[in-house]
Design a protein around this nucleic acid. Sequence first.
DNA 1: TACATCTTGTAGCTTAGGCTACATTTTGCC
DNA 2: GGCAAAATGTAGCCTAAGCTACAAGATGTA
Lengths: 152, 152
Amino acid sequence: MPPKKPSRTAAKPVRPSALQAESLQQTRREHASETAEDYVEAIADLTASLGEARVVDLARRLGVTHVTVNRTLARLQQAGFVTARPYRGIFLTAEGRQLAAACQQRHTTVIAFLRSLGISEHAAEIDAEGIEHHVSPETLAAFERHLRREAR
Amino acid sequence: MPPKKPSRTAAKPVRPSALQAESLQQTRREHASETAEDYVEAIADLTASLGEARVVDLARRLGVTHVTVNRTLARLQQAGFVTARPYRGIFLTAEGRQLAAACQQRHTTVIAFLRSLGISEHAAEIDAEGIEHHVSPETLAAFERHLRREAR
DNA sequence: TACATCTTGTAGCTTAGGCTACATTTTGCC
DNA sequence: GGCAAAATGTAGCCTAAGCTACAAGATGTA
């Protein structure tokens, strides 16, 4: 028989206790908001360059079909980030614009930070897209600090 | 009427063209493997410290219920990363051990890198959990290079 | 040995995010 | 004005990953 740990009380509502469990739960929470962040950022960009964001534009931009965009927009509307009427353009609410601005700022910082480490433009773009959603304010501040130090 | 972009040909099987679309698709692919990585890493740790990994241990460790662990293990078994029999311990295959080792290595590097930027232990742990899955080999190499430079 | 407890397994629900296929509305243009 | 094409919307399917509730196997100890 393999070495057996002493039995532990089960604690029905499983409380994670471990730091790793906490970290993983945080990561899962972040995943839930990633979509919203990607969409508002894309909408902000498209609005800036084209005057409004359309479903097809978003689909092309995000690499999904227009159907996926549609369903996601419904949720974002419920969440109060965007306004949209059937067959019309999509616009950000004040809250949406605020979120988009923060994301764009963070995105720029992460890219600049990766580039400062000697990472190629292409890899920096790709990695930043995955990394940025998991960068805490503390870590973002550290990135900015590092960039300022580099600039000297 | 808002300024209207010139209509573009639709290209039925939407090809993403844009770099951002490519990046986002890459990020989605990474999400799909994140779970596998987290599980094999946890199983490797538990096996090292307790001799075997049990469903309850994994559940506690990952911050989910044993039901979720069970279903995920079935997929990991199909994918060839773990072996398990009903009511028995869970073990990694050779492939699983290899993946776990790579993940642990990468995890350690990311943590060390964040710490070297002056980020607190706690924030580094949490951020690393989200970031590590999106770090390309090129970026990982840059992290290691930075650490070596720091060490001088 | 038997029973209570812990562990594991199963059924079935939910949400999110992909998709194809098809219907409907807008719109550019002759 | 009318028509074809583009854009948008809708129905319905899939997988992944969470959950609760309940069933059944394993085990330690009285």
